[in-house]
Amino acid sequence: MPGDARPAAAASSADVAALQGVLAAENAAVYGYGLAGAQLSGGQLSVAQQDWTLHRAASATISAMITQRGAAPAAAPVAYRPPFRVNSAAAAVALTAILEDGLVTAYLGLVALDDRSLRTFGAQQMQAAAIRAAGWRGSTMAFPGLPASALRSGG
């Protein structure tokens, strides 16, 4: 296997870098769901609260995974700047979909690692985030997380 020839330190640093990317996306989701929740009500608020709790737990899990690899989890910024003003329910829903899309992409990074367990974990979390994103957006995507540049034209 190609990955077996690599020094352990190099493999570990790639794992940690990818996990730090996931942690940043999870922390952004925790903050963003807080913003979105302020604009939501009823069933949407209930779902957003569940998702917020889930992302807080995921943030703690990923932090622990980074620590287990001998690195320090990057601290979450005090605040995040959303890509647009979140001053309506529609904007809140759009923001949650964007946050989940960001998580799908971040977890996709784990799938490229040599560590088989991280690959599977990343793929499972991608599915969960893609399902939440589709729920907020109201539609599914053919290639969640993959940038257009990764797709072959005319293929």
């Binding site: 690959r119 793929a123 599915q127 599914t140």
Partner: peptide, 12 residues
Amino acid sequence: QLYASIAASEAT
């Protein structure tokens, strides 16, 4: 990554 993305699509 392609398999994982397709799997995520199928899950949705």
